[in-house]
Amino acid sequence: MKIEITEDGKMHTVRVPITVVAKMIKSNNTDPQSGAKIAKALRACKKKYPKLKLVEVESEDGEKVDIFL
């Protein structure tokens, strides 16, 4: 996954491997089965929509956050 934060005209990019995200979801989820299900779906979606913009936030103060799959 890629997170792009634009603040004061500067863009900061953070890349998080989908496997790490999947592990975090598994460990944070109270139900391990549903955690595994989400991790599997995330991987499938990554294959299907490699550059999908999952979340786009635009603040009134001009800050922008984009989260790509």
Partner: peptide, 14 residues
Amino acid sequence: DKVKLNIPILLLKA
């Protein structure tokens, strides 16, 4: 804030 979410149904089901 303006928030836009694009959630594949495949992911939503999970």
